[in-house]
Amino acid sequence: MVDIGHDNRVGEFRGRTGPYWSLRPMRGGTEWDAEPEHVRPADPIERLRAENARCNARSRGEFL
């Protein structure tokens, strides 16, 4: 998912928190709340970039 309300951050949908959606960065890290009207599905290139960043983080031994 892409949060256009937070600089087009790409994250995985984790659930709902009241009126907000919880998203988590693809590389791991702290979840953030996003307004559902500011979230859209990631297009193929955005998904590829996020998956590549996740693989690179994993190869460096970063926690996911």
Rank of each mutant, 00 (worst) to 15 (best):
Pro44Asp: 15
Phe13Lys: 02
Asp33Thr: 00
Met1Ile: 04
Arg49Ser: 10
Asp7Glu: 13
Pro36Trp: 11
Ala53Ile: 03
Val39Arg: 04
Arg14Asn: 01
Glu35Met: 05
Glu12Val: 09
Gly15Asn: 13
Ala53Gly: 03
Asp43Cys: 00
Glu62Gly: 03
Met1Gly: 07
Gly11Trp: 02
Ser59Phe: 14
Pro36Leu: 11
Arg49Tyr: 08
Thr30Ala: 10
Asp43Pro: 01
Pro25Leu: 12
Arg9Cys: 06
Phe63Trp: 06
Pro19Gly: 03
Ala57Asn: 14
Glu51Arg: 12
Met1Thr: 05
Asp33His: 01
Asn8Tyr: 15
Ser22Ala: 11
Pro41Ile: 06
Arg54Tyr: 05
Arg54Thr: 02
Arg60Pro: 02
Gly29Trp: 04
Arg47Glu: 14
Gly11Asp: 04
Arg58Ile: 15
Asp3Phe: 03
Pro41Leu: 11
Asp43Lys: 04
Gly61Ser: 03
Trp32Ala: 00
Tyr20Leu: 12
Arg9Phe: 06
Asp43Met: 04
Ala42Trp: 10
His38Gly: 05
Pro44Ser: 15
Met1Trp: 08
Arg49Lys: 11
Gly11Met: 02
Ser22Met: 08
Asp43Arg: 03
Phe13Asp: 01
Asp7Gln: 10
His6Cys: 03
Gly15His: 15
Phe63Leu: 12
Pro25Ser: 13
Met26Thr: 04
Ile45Glu: 08
Pro44Glu: 14
Glu51Gly: 09
Trp21Arg: 00
Asp3Trp: 05
His38Val: 05
Leu48Arg: 07
Met1Pro: 10
Trp21Asn: 00
Arg49Asn: 12
Arg14Phe: 01
Asn52His: 07
Gly18Thr: 12
Arg49Pro: 07
Ser59Ile: 13
Glu31Leu: 12
Gly29His: 07
Glu46Tyr: 10
His6Trp: 08
Phe13Glu: 00
Leu48Phe: 10
Val2Lys: 00
Thr17Gln: 06
Ala50Cys: 13
Arg14His: 01
Pro44Met: 13
Pro19Tyr: 06
Pro36His: 13
Asp33Val: 01
His6Glu: 02
Gly18Leu: 09
Ala57Glu: 10
Pro41Glu: 08
Ala57Pro: 11
His38Trp: 13
Ala53Trp: 00
Leu64His: 02
Asn56Phe: 09
Arg58Leu: 14
Ser22Glu: 08
Ser22Pro: 01
His38Phe: 12
Trp32Leu: 00
Ala53Val: 00
Ala53Phe: 00
Gly11Phe: 02
Gly29Cys: 07
Pro36Ser: 14
Phe63Glu: 04
Arg24Gln: 05
Met26Leu: 06
His38Glu: 13
Arg24Val: 03
Glu51Ala: 14
Met1Arg: 01
Gly28Lys: 09
Asp33Asn: 07
Arg60Lys: 13
Arg60Thr: 09
Asn8Val: 10
Ile4Cys: 12
Arg27Leu: 05
Arg16Met: 12
Gly15Arg: 15
Arg9Trp: 08
Pro25Asn: 13
Asp43His: 07
Gly61Cys: 01
Asp43Thr: 02
Trp32Cys: 01
Glu35Ser: 11
Glu37Thr: 15
Val2Leu: 04
Ala50Glu: 06
Ala34Ile: 12
Trp32Pro: 02
Pro36Cys: 14
Ser22Phe: 01
Ile4Arg: 11
Met1His: 08
Glu35Cys: 07
Thr17Ile: 08
Thr30Tyr: 08
Thr30Val: 11
Met1Leu: 07
